[in-house]
C-alpha cells in the first residue's frame, strides 16, 4: 500500500474512531454535527425507500434517536454512513412490517403515488419547475420498482456507495447487489424513458 493510501486510511480510521468515542459518550455536539452532515443523504434515502416524505421525516428522527441509544455498538472499522443507513433501513423495514406485513411497496396507497415534492434552490422559475417535475418523475418511477432494487439503486447512484458498502447495509452478497442494480436499472429505463436525455 502506498503512503497516500495509508495516510487516507489512517485519516478515515481516526475520524471514525472519534465518532465512535463521541457516540459512546453520547456527545450532543457530535450528534448535532452528524445530523447536519448527513441530513440530505439520509432523508433522500428514506424518502426513496418509503415513498412517503412524512414517514421519511419521522423515520429520520427515529434513526438519530436509535443512533444515540446504540452508539456504543458502532464499530469504527466501518464507515459511519454505512452504519447509519443500516439503522435507517432496519427501522423502515420494522415500521413497514408492523404497518403492513409484506413488501415495502405495499406501503404506497393509491393516494401516495406521487411521493415527493423536492426542495430546489435554483434561481430560475423555469428551472425550478423543470427540476421539480424531473424529481417527481424520478420518485414516481423509483417507487414503482421492487424495494430491494430501489434501495440498491438509491444507495449506489444517489449516495455513491460501493458495492461492498451496499452489501453491508442490505445484508446481501456483492453478487446479489450487482444483480439488483442491473435489474433495477432495467426496470427504471422504460419508466424514465421520457425523462432521459
Amino acid at each position: 500500500m502506498n503512503a497516500a493510501a495509508c495516510y487516507f486510511l489512517n485519516g478515515m480510521e481516526s475520524e471514525t474512531s472519534a465518532i465512535a468515542r463521541g457516540l459512546r459518550r453520547r456527545d450532543p455536539d457530535l450528534l448535532d454535527r452528524l445530523i447536519e452532515q448527513y441530513q440530505h443523504r439520509l432523508l433522500r434515502f428514506l424518502v426513496y425507500l418509503t415513498g412517503d416524505r412524512q414517514l421519511a421525516q419521522d423515520l429520520f428522527q427515529e434513526t438519530w434517536i436509535r443512533v444515540l441509544e446504540r452508539g456504543n455498538q458502532y464499530d469504527p472499522k466501518h464507515e459511519f454512513s454505512t452504519w447509519l443507513f443500516t439503522i435507517a433501513r432496519n427501522l423502515s423495514i420494522d415500521y413497514l412490517r408492523k404497518k403492513r406485513p409484506a413488501s415495502l411497496d405495499e406501503l404506497l396507497g393509491e393516494e401516495n403515488h406521487s411521493p415527493e415534492l423536492p426542495v430546489d434552490n435554483r434561481p430560475s422559475a423555469l428551472e425550478v419547475a423543470t427540476q421539480h417535475e424531473q424529481a417527481e418523475r424520478i420518485s414516481a418511477a423509483l417507487v414503482c420498482i421492487p424495494a430491494e432494487y430501489r434501495e440498491a439503486v438509491v444507495l449506489r447512484f444517489q449516495e455513491g456507495m460501493t458495492l461492498e458498502e451496499i452489501g453491508a447495509v442490505t445484508g446481501a452478497p456483492v453478487g446479489t447487489v450487482k444483480s439488483r442494480l442491473y435489474r433495477g436499472l432495467n426496470a427504471l429505463m422504460p419508466l424514465l424513458k421520457g425523462a432521459l436525455g
Binding site: 428522527q61 426542495v119 424529481a135 424520478i138 436499472l185 427504471l188 424514465l192
Partner: peptide
C-alpha cells in the same frame, strides 16, 4: 443517461426537520 438523471434529482431536508 439514467444514472445522470437519478443523480440530478434534488431533494433536501428542511431546516426545521434538522
Amino acid at each position: 443517461q439514467l444514472i445522470r438523471c437519478l443523480r440530478s434529482a434534488p431533494l433536501a431536508a428542511d431546516l426545521s426537520l434538522v
